[in-house]
Computed example of a mutant assay.
Amino acid sequence: MTIAVTADVEFAITIEDDGVGLPSDFHKSGLHNLERRAEHCGGTCTIVNHDPSGARLLWRVPLGRTNSNRPKSGR
C-alpha cells in the first residue's frame, strides 16, 4: 500500500494498493461519505481500479476556500 499527501493549491491524499481491485458492483457505503465531504469543500474523490491490479483512491480539495458553514470566531 502507498499513501501520499500533498498540499499546495490543493490538499490531496492518494491511496493505492496492489490487491484484487474493486468489483464493478461494489457498494460505496463509507466511501460515499468521503465523496460528499470532498464535494462540500469544492473538491473531488475518485475510486478506481489501478493497473495491473489493486485500487486507487484520490481525495482532493482546493486550499484557501472559505467555508460558509464554518463557525465564526467570537471576535
Rank of each mutant, 00 (worst) to 15 (best):
T44R: 11
N49I: 07
T44D: 15
D51V: 11
D17H: 01
M1R: 03
E39P: 00
G42E: 04
R70Y: 09
P52F: 04
R37P: 00
R65N: 08
R60S: 12
G54R: 06
P52G: 05
V9G: 12
H50L: 13
D25K: 01
G30D: 10
N67L: 09
H32Q: 13
D8A: 15
R75T: 13
A38F: 05
E16W: 05
R56Q: 13
A12G: 07
G64D: 05
I15G: 01
R56E: 09
L63Q: 13
I47Q: 03
A38H: 03
I13A: 11
N49T: 02
V61Y: 07
K28F: 02
A38G: 09
D18C: 08
G19R: 03
C41I: 00
R65M: 10
H40F: 13
L31D: 04
E10F: 05
T46G: 07
T14E: 13
P23I: 04
N67W: 07
G21M: 04
R37Q: 14
F26A: 01
D18P: 02
N49K: 01
K28L: 04
H32R: 12
D51Y: 12
W59S: 10
E10I: 04
L63S: 07
C41L: 15
T6H: 03
E16I: 11
R60D: 02
E35P: 00
A12W: 00
R56Y: 00
R75P: 14
D25W: 05
M1I: 05
S24M: 05
H40L: 14
H40A: 15
K72L: 12
E16Q: 13
V48A: 07
T14M: 03
L58S: 09
S53Q: 10
F26I: 05
L63A: 01
T66N: 01
P71T: 04
G42V: 09
A12R: 15
R65Y: 06
G64Q: 02
G19S: 08
S53N: 10
W59F: 15
D25N: 09
I3C: 07
G54Y: 03
E35I: 00
P23Y: 02
T66K: 06
T66E: 09
V5N: 01
T14Y: 00
G64Y: 06
A4D: 13
P62H: 10
R56C: 13
